[in-house]
Lab assay of single mutants.
Amino acid sequence: MDALKSAGRALIRSPSLAKQSWGGGGRHRKLPENWTDTRETLLEGMLFSLKYLGMTLVEQPKGEELSAAAIKRIVATAKASGKKLQKVTLKVSPRGIILTDNLTNQLIENVSIYRISYCTADKMHDKVFAYIAQSQHNQSLECHAFLCTKRKMAQAVTLTVAQAFKVAFEFWQVSKEEKEKRDKASQEGGDVLGARQDCTPPLKSLVATGNLLDLEETAKAPLSTVSANTTNMDEVPRPQALSGSSVVWELDDGLDEAFSRLAQSRTNPQVLDTGLTAQDMHYAQCLSPVDWDKPDSSGTEQDDLFSF
């Protein structure tokens, strides 16, 4: 819950932080000083300027060897085509990944977070970031790969997607708890209302004896509580940590079903599988986004697919 609360507080303090972009060759504004600060901008989305290598189908939802083989196929196909790589912007948030063309600003792909089953910074092609997700059109699994400016960037994108998945799962947990509370309150309110109706004398007997209905007592009954809980029953509950912020979080049926399955089948359902080692994760978390744009010590960066 700490990640969720800190993310909400950060967004309320400075929503404009989320509009910064990394990996864009110096076009961005001043960047936060450390990885923790940038992680807090996830709610509205972190932007990464990358190059799209392509996509291939895979048979399993996750796995280092599986993704490595898929990336190898994608890279080989991209090299064989001889075409310049498409420059894209990857927007990562707890909602998922939005992929747009840098030149036309046209939407290429919009992947809900619950469809993503794996992401990684490839070991062999260490400047490549990739994720595996279920197609929104059918049940097939797709591996999408992107060329980053350097290994640090690939690791940073991988960690960002993993963190977005974690925050999304926490949102789901909060929403589920809130819905259970509202359902319980609604049920209790309905029981109270039913009890009051059972003990209320029939209207005919009131008229016969000349008694008047006590409207004041009726007004004191917990009807307002019942209506408050039943009027918006169809509205999706939102985490309290975000009250007053500009973010509107809505959970669709697909996300609810997917996270429910994860909660039942996995020990740590909030953790998205990645190909990063503990050492890689520690190294990337210690980086400032400013470091992502620094040239690798191995030599001059080449803006070309064939540089790796």
Rank of each mutant, 00 (worst) to 15 (best):
C148M: 07
A221E: 04
S186D: 03
G275S: 02
V58E: 10
R196C: 10
E59D: 13
V226N: 15
S16N: 08
N268Y: 00
A145H: 11
E40T: 14
V226G: 10
E33S: 10
W22K: 09
L193A: 01
G96I: 03
N110Y: 08
S49W: 10
L141T: 14
D256H: 02
A69T: 13
A130I: 12
R182A: 13
I108C: 03
R39D: 08
A80F: 08
D2K: 07
L255P: 03
P237N: 07
A219V: 14
Y52K: 04
T209L: 07
V167F: 10
R13E: 06
A121I: 03
L147K: 04
V161C: 07
S298M: 02
E33I: 09
I71N: 09
E142G: 15
L42D: 00
L305Q: 08
S135I: 08
A156L: 08
T277V: 08
Q173N: 07
A208W: 01
P61E: 06
Y118A: 01
W249H: 06
A278C: 08
L50Y: 04
P269V: 01
P201D: 11
M153V: 04
A228N: 07
S297Q: 08
D2E: 03
A133V: 05
S265M: 00
Q163T: 00
D198S: 03
A121R: 05
K19R: 11
L251Y: 12
T160R: 07
E180H: 05
S298P: 03
Q187R: 10
V88Q: 04
D122A: 15
N34Y: 02
G24M: 08
T100S: 13
I12L: 15
Q270R: 06
W22A: 11
A208R: 04
M153K: 12
K87A: 07
S297I: 09
T160Y: 14
Q187F: 02
L223Y: 01
R261P: 02
L107K: 05
G275Q: 06
A228I: 08
K62Q: 15
G275C: 15
A145G: 14
N268M: 04
L276M: 13
S205W: 04
S205H: 15
T300G: 00
V88T: 14
V192T: 08
E217T: 15
K62W: 07
L203N: 02
L66R: 15
T200F: 02
Q279P: 07
N229S: 03
L242F: 12
W35E: 14
Y114M: 00
V248L: 01
Q187M: 05
E64S: 07
Q106F: 09
P202L: 11
E178W: 03
S67C: 01
K83R: 09
P237D: 08
D198A: 05
A133Q: 10
L141S: 04
Q134R: 13
G194K: 09
N34L: 13
A3M: 12
D304Y: 09
G63C: 15
P295G: 10
A68I: 01
T120N: 00
G45E: 09
V161P: 02
G96E: 11
I132N: 15
R29G: 09
I116P: 04
K179V: 12
E216K: 09
